[in-house]
Design a protein around this nucleic acid. Structure first.
Length: 231
DNA sequence: CCAGACGTTGTT
DNA sequence: GTCTGG
DNA sequence: CCAGACGTTGTT
DNA sequence: GTCTGG
C-alpha cells in the first residue's frame, strides 16, 4: 500500500531536503487519503517545483476520473508494463514528500493501524508518477500514484507491501526526465532499510478520512485502541 | 480483425 | 494510447 | 486505505 | 457483496 499518509514538515524543511524553489505554504496534514490533493516535487526546466495534485492516477485516455480511485498504488515490479503506468514511469516521475505513512495490520477480521516513519522523524520521499488528464470542460487535471515494493524486516511484521522510499542521493536521477531506462530505474525499487525506520500502533481515529488531527499519530499501547481517551 | 480492459489490496 | 482476449 | 451507501419522485 | 466518496 499505503492508502494513507501524513505530511507535517515546514516549508523551510522541505525546501532544504528536496531542493525546492519557492515552496508553497504546506499546511500540516496527518491523514492524507486517496482522491485528496497531495504535495509532489517535480523537476521542470531544471528546477525542482512543489505542486499539489490529486492522489489517484487518471491516465490520459480515461473516459472519466473514476478510475483514479483504483490507481493510488503502482506495483514497481510491473510498472513498466502496465498500460496505465508505462508512459508516466518513463517521463513523469515525482517525489511525494511525507512525514510517515499508515499500514493496517490484519488479524482475522481485526485491522490495526500503525504509523511508520523514519527513526529521526525527518520527512522523506516516496517514488511517485504523475499524469495529466483533460476534463471535458477543457481543464487539465493532474493526478499521481505511488510505487510499492516488498516490505523490509520492520514492515513485514505489519503488512506484505510497502511504498518505494527513495534515498536523498537518488532524488536527482528519479526526477531527471532524460532518464527513462528501465534497468536504471528498477535499481531504485528496493525496500528501504528497516534499521532507520520506526513503527508504532495508533488509534483507529485515523480510519476515518474526516479526522485529520495530530491525534492520528499518537502512539497507543497494543490491545488498547482507546489510548487517547485514557491517556 | 474488433471489443474491452487498462489496478492494487486483501480476502477467499 | 496500447495491450489482451476472442 | 476505510467508511458509508446501496434510490426515486417530487418539491424547493 | 460491491461501489463510491473522502
Amino acid at each position: 500500500m499505503p492508502g494513507r499518509f501524513a505530511l507535517y514538515a515546514s516549508a523551510e524543511q522541505l525546501a532544504d531536503i528536496f531542493s525546492v524553489q519557492l515552496p508553497e505554504k504546506v499546511v500540516p496534514r496527518y491523514n492524507i487519503s486517496p482522491s485528496q490533493q497531495v504535495a509532489v516535487i517535480r523537476n521542470l526546466g531544471g528546477e525542482n517545483h512543489l505542486d499539489f495534485m490529486k492522489w489517484g492516477l487518471v491516465p490520459s485516455w480515461a473516459d472519466d476520473m473514476a478510475i483514479g480511485y483504483k490507481l493510488i498504488n503502482a506495483r514497481s515490479e510491473t510498472v513498466f508494463e502496465k498500460n496505465s503506468f508505462k508512459r508516466a514511469i518513463r517521463t513523469r516521475r515525482c517525489l511525494v514528500p511525507i512525514s510517515g505513512f499508515y499500514e493496517w495490520q490484519s488479524s482475522g477480521s481485526a485491522k490495526t493501524p500503525f504509523y511508520i516513519s523514519m527513526a529521526d522523524n525527518k520527512p522523506f520521499a516516496l517514488a511517485g508518477i504523475w499524469e495529466q488528464w483533460k476534463n471535458p470542460d477543457g481543464s487539465i487535471i493532474e493526478t499521481c500514484a505511488i510505487l510499492t515494493t516488498t516490505p523490509n524486516r520492520l514492515i513485514e511484521t505489519i503488512h506484505d507491501r510497502m511504498p518505494v522510499i527513495l534515498h536523498p542521493q537518488e532524488y536527482s536521477v528519479w526526477l531527471d526526465r532524460e532518464v527513462s531506462d528501465p534497468a536504471t530505474l528498477k535499481q531504485l525499487f528496493k525496500p528501504y532499510p528497516a534499521e532507520v525506520m520506526t513503527a508504532f500502533q495508533v488509534s483507529t481515529i485515523v480510519n476515518s478520512v474526516r479526522n485529520d488531527g495530530e491525534e492520528c499519530i499518537i502512539k497507543v499501547d497494543s490491545q488498547d485502541d482507546t489510548g487517547l481517551l485514557f491517556n
